[in-house]
Amino acid sequence: MKVLVAVKRVIDYNVKIRVKPDNSDVDLTNVKMAMNPFCEIAVEEAVRLKEAGTASEVVAVSIGPKAAQEQLRTALALGADRALHVQTDERVESLGAARALAKVVEEEQPELMILGKQAIDSDNNQTGQMLAALTGRPQGTFASAIKVEGDSLEVIREVDGGLQTVSLKLPAIVTTDLRLNEPRYAKLPDIMKAKKKPLETRTPEEMGVEVASQLKLVSVEPPAERQGGVTVGSVDELVDKLKNEAKVIS
């Protein structure tokens, strides 16, 4: 079966972000960018399905500026067969991304599409669910294990308080949670090989989809700074402070 996997270019998770002085947005100039960690897990799962003989082809898709091709090359180095870049400089939010991906799904007809459950920049946790709704496909969100069973997919989901197992009729959409797998690192020879793998570039306009954001970003502010407190010298002092100063225990 054909597996599509979505990847998003985001700020590297180790970078401490700064808000622009005019509070218009987060400052991304000269900041290290990387593949969203949940998308890395999605790519890994797709590649493992291919290695297991379940998937016949893995196609990576990204929506974003020209530089997003770096993350598509990473996906190719990790084992995707080809890549599709929907190039736009618009600020794309989940609905726009889901619309573009729905168009790709309509054209490519994958049996399975895997996405990260959320991107660590917008922290929305929406795109996979929206894509499932727009394509009329079932969804297995926050997956910690997936298994193809004939024409259905069994998904173990991380839910509040534990795990839920659902069965989805293929074709289906899956979003990854942290424990689905541990992504590999790309090896140098694979990075070299990835440069020769096919990467197609298209625009939302030629695909006939509207990706621009419908939400107005009014302002972005740093959060209220939490003041560090005091170091206490002993457990006795701690218990005393909690009782008599903070009054959170009795």
Binding site: I11, K16, I17, V19, V26, I120, D121, S122, D123, L215, K216, L217, V218, S219, V220, E221, P222, P223
Partner: peptide
């Protein structure tokens, strides 16, 4: 947004 390292106001 950004793991709570920024607070966005959206309309």
């Amino acid at each position: 947004v950004y793991a709570g390292n920024a607070i966005a106001t959206v309309q």
